[in-house]
Amino acid sequence: MENPFGKITTVGAVMNCFYDGMTLMFGGFGGVGTPPTIIDAILDKGIQDLTLIGNDTGFPHIGIGKIVSRGRARKVIASHIGSNPIAGKLMHDGKLEVEFSPQGILAERIRAGGVGLPAILSDIGMDNEIVSRDKPRYQLHGNEYLVETALTAEVSIVYAKKADFYGNLIYDKSARNTNPLVAMAGEITIAEVEEIVPMGSLDPDEIITPGVFVDYIISSQGVNWRWAWE
């Protein structure tokens, strides 16, 4: 298979992108749409002290939850951690810093980071101490808003159903979730995909993430995480 754009590689070849203390952004919702091969490789390499940004902390042994459960994360920025009781215990024991962000606001903060905006304004959670604590406020047109900083990461990891040689991505149903936003917000974006096809094989109307956002493509082990919901 020809690889004219040089983006197709192996999981071992991209491991130099990961290092202790980095910020890692991930797609997925409870494990659905989270790249399993990449996560296993990060664990095998022993990467630790991570700041993780994503919708949730997965389940204890599924998705990003495997990294959290093994104590490899220092901080998590997420909308909830309830599906992973180990994350909750680590937080209460003072071993994991957790920054909660309402799900829609979290998604918008990631999108803002992906398009180069420094922050967004929101009136969500104005009276909620957990949400609004230590956040600056801004007056506009007679109304007050919280200033929610944009989110970016050194590396973003996403999971897709198909990719062509340039890195154009198609996601499978609910696996789409936050992946398109996460793919935009990393300095380096690595996509794990189930199928790699030649240029011109994808219907342009079905492409969700343009290849300009994707730096590397690796083949998946073919694991389907949708069983987690059954």
Rank of each mutant, 00 (worst) to 15 (best):
Q139M: 13
I110K: 04
S122D: 10
R72T: 05
I188Q: 05
H80I: 00
S174C: 08
N168V: 07
A87G: 09
T23N: 06
I120K: 10
I157N: 02
E2Q: 13
K66E: 12
G27Y: 01
S220K: 08
M91P: 03
I47E: 00
A175H: 11
D123Y: 01
V147C: 03
E144C: 11
I67F: 05
S122P: 12
P136L: 02
F213Q: 11
A87R: 02
A191W: 11
D134P: 03
V155P: 06
I42K: 07
I64F: 02
M15Q: 13
G6H: 09
E108G: 05
G21Y: 08
G27L: 02
R70D: 04
G21N: 09
L52W: 03
L52N: 04
V68I: 10
P118A: 07
I208T: 15
L146W: 05
R137M: 12
G116R: 12
P36F: 12
H92M: 12
P204F: 01
S83T: 14
G33T: 03
A73G: 02
I86W: 05
V11T: 13
E99V: 12
D164P: 04
F213E: 12
E230F: 09
G71D: 01
D56Y: 02
S101Y: 00
E97H: 04
P210N: 09
V182Y: 10
G21I: 11
F29G: 13
V193G: 06
S132N: 07
I67Q: 03
